[in-house]
Design a protein around this nucleic acid. Structure first.
Lengths: 198, 198
DNA sequence: CGGGGCATGTAACCTGTTACATGATTAG
DNA sequence: CTAATCATGTAACAGGTTACATGCCCCG
């Protein structure tokens, strides 16, 4: 339930239309939150209904462009929400399910997929590092700047972690099997091992 | 859409009832996937409808206990799915939105929340490390074992990352402000800084 | 005047969460 | 007998995804 507050934040940074927000969510906020334009329009309507933002038709632009800005009630709500405790949302990582499944039924050719994802994570890491060099080369004493840098660093930490993980996974998957066995050539090793703890 | 395949995997590891699966999802699979019992029952019904699993009433147990086991079609489906390419699901990390919001509206007292979460991540890390010591002390040559260890290591990497991140965040949030300013005591620093790239 | 980008939406659907409902068995 | 635990479900809803619908305006 943080989409409304993500939108409030983005609108405080700069009043915008739904369209602009959708575009900006692919940039400044994409490290850790994203939303489709449908979601954004839906949510903007709710925010306005709650009296947290106000829209005004932008006559200078084409189409029925509506620019939203945050009202005082919206700011208060945002400040209230920021300090509210919230447990980390549990992970849902499909790749781990695949690895478990591969462990259960025997080799399924997962290596190429992992290699592909390693490349993706390396590329994303490079993008983040380029942004860091461009925008945060000099360490700033300003609180807001440092926090924004921190969020970017989280993205960097995350991508680094996935690179590291992918390499470990490839090392295991590409390992030659201990004894291939001359006869039946499939899924023999799998059944014997049960999950570790219980 | 990996819940059905997570269930297939768990059922291959050991045929079980819905209730057992719900309990086991809190253990062996909880690092990276979880599901409520409602989801599990709903999904088991679908799996049976698809002809991937079969249920049989367990007379020896109390209640209307139904034990599910995976059929050949289910195994085939699982093998097919494992190799299927799938991009990493984008992150959704509420805490990052909070940090961004704090950067936008000024200090909101986020430190205590971050400290709380640091403690949570440290605790979880300790749990994972204990499991690792207990179940994976000796390095095994068996593929399935090594993959299961790998998945646990992903959990460890993840928790370590969050600890590292939380500490960095606390360092910034607890820093004294450069010039506090004698007059107005609120939200002055925020507005001047815009998001980095655009 | 036609195509492409700007701009705003509706509708249907799937997944996951929360709350509620039901009954069987066993321990005290 | 009663409470706890085992065991299986239904219903309603919220959030997110996909597909579709609509119209404006500028450029060629």
């Amino acid at each position: 339930m943080s989409l409304p507050h993500a939108l409030l934040t983005a609108l405080i940074e700069r009043p915008s239309s739904g369209f602009d927000l959708a575009a900006r969510f692919d940039k400044s906020m994409a490290y850790f939150w994203q939303a489709s334009h449908q979601q954004i329009y839906r949510e903007l309507a709710r925010l306005e209904e709650s009296g947290w933002v106000r829209s005004s038709a932008d006559e200078s632009a084409r189409g029925g462009r509506k620019v939203y800005e945050v009202l005082d009630a919206g700011r208060e709500e945002l400040r209230r929400w920021v300090a509210e405790p919230a447990d980390p949302r549990p992970l849902r990582e499909e790749l781990m399910v695949r690895l478990r499944a591969d462990a259960a039924v025997g080799p399924c050719g997962l290596e190429s997929e992992i290699a592909r994802r390693l490349a993706l994570h390396q590329a994303q890491l490079a993008v983040y590092q380029a942004i860091e060099q461009r925008d945060f080369a000099a360490s700033s004493p300003q609180r807001a700047q440092r926090l924004q840098h921190l969020v970017l660093q989280a993205g960097i930490l995350m991508e680094s972690m996935w690179c590291e993980f992918s390499e470990r996974a490839l090392a295991i998957l590409n390992e030659p099997e201990p004894e291939p066995g001359p006869g039946s050539g499939e899924a023999v090793t799998a059944q014997s091992v049960n999950p570790p703890s219980s």
